[in-house]
Design a binder for these strands. Structure first.
Length: 306
DNA sequence: ACCCAGGCATTGG
DNA sequence: CCAATGCATGGG
């Protein structure tokens, strides 16, 4: 095992614990990610090569600095750079939070939340494929149930690497899921529908590789049009892809029950609002509706919006 | 035993 | 274009 250490300097303010914690749903570990003892770990998938990364903070919120340890069987300088860039993307280190915080000042609820989660950057998935599959698995069902199913999928079909007696998993590749029979996925507790969606999307990703690679270049509305043309992907899923995989600042996952509830509780005395009301209300957060959404979910996951 | 959960596709008006 | 319905599992 060959290990290299590199350094990242995120845009301040940057709170490492919160940002890595969001990846793990503020638990010790979640799916492919873990955060224990101030150490964020994840197995990176660089094409054929797997790189185990372990990140820790050696700076502060105001002067952030991250130490990134990269371990692989062999590792070239070029691969180390690529892996470091991927870590930067996963943790959203380049984001400037200032414009959003300025906007939040005029909103008493968001002011309180941004104070509590000061320095939380918006984390990203490693790929569009990962974001879509995770969103499909999360459709409609309770997050606890989704977590069980995600873990099963990752540990059954994800590429893995053993290190110091522990097995680490990366997210399954499309080529691993495309040939899997729907019946096999059903054994992992996916519904018939979701098994079809996931297998079909994996296949579509392989067949239309260029089209999905193009998403980065397209404006939000075009991305949504491309994605919702695929079976299993509706407006809600497409919006979460904008948030999680593409890092777009102004997405809004209408249809999201948890978002409706947290907004209802924090702004409407608990009277559950519908999507039309939510869309109208969320206009106040534009052009940073993604930031507002993620901060509200952080509040929810930490017991602030129930 | 129910009912619901960070939706979606399908069907019928 | 809007409303109603089945899906499937684990927790309350």
């Amino acid at each position: 095992m060959d290990c290299i250490t590199t350094t990242l300097f995120p845009a301040a303010p940057f709170n490492f614990e919160l940002t890595a914690g969001y990846h793990t749903y503020f638990r010790g570990s979640y799916g492919t990610d873990s955060l224990e003892g101030g150490e964020y770990r994840r197995l990176l998938d660089l094409g054929p090569k797997l790189v185990l990364t372990s990140v820790r903070s050696i700076g502060s919120v105001a002067h952030p600095e991250l130490q990134v340890q990269l371990c692989s069987e062999t590792l070239t300088e070029r691969e180390a750079t690529e892996a470091t860039q991927q870590v930067a993307w996963l943790l959203g280190t380049d984001q400037d939070l200032t414009p959003f915080y300025n906007l939040a000042h005029s909103d008493p609820v968001l002011s309180q939340i941004t104070e509590r989660f000061y320095g939380l950057h918006l984390p990203h998935t490693a790929s569009v494929f990962e974001a879509v599959v995770l969103a499909i698995l999360g459709q409609q069902i309770a997050t606890n149930v989704a977590r069980i199913i995600r873990t099963l999928l990752i540990e059954t079909y994800g590429p893995s690497l053993e290190h110091e007696g522990e097995q680490h998993f990366a997210f399954p590749r499309p080529e691993a899921l495309a040939p899997v029979a729907v019946g096999e996925l059903r054994k992992l507790k996916l519904s018939q529908r979701k098994a079809e969606y996931v297998q079909g999307f994996a296949q579509a990703t392989l067949e239309g590789f260029n089209r999905l690679g193009m998403l980065q270049e397209l404006p939000d509305a075009e991305v949504v049009k491309e994605l919702t043309g695929l079976r299993g992907i509706g407006h809600w899923t497409a919006q979460w892809v904008l948030v999680r995989a593409l890092g777009r600042p102004d997405a809004l996952p209408l249809g999201d029950l948890a978002l409706r509830r947290v907004v209802s509780n924090l702004y409407f005395r608990g009277d559950l609002i519908d999507d039309n009301q939510l869309a109208e209300f969320a206009a106040r957060w534009s052009p940073y509706r993604t930031y507002a959404t993620v901060y509200l979910f952080s509040a929810l996951r930490n017991g602030m919006g129930q």
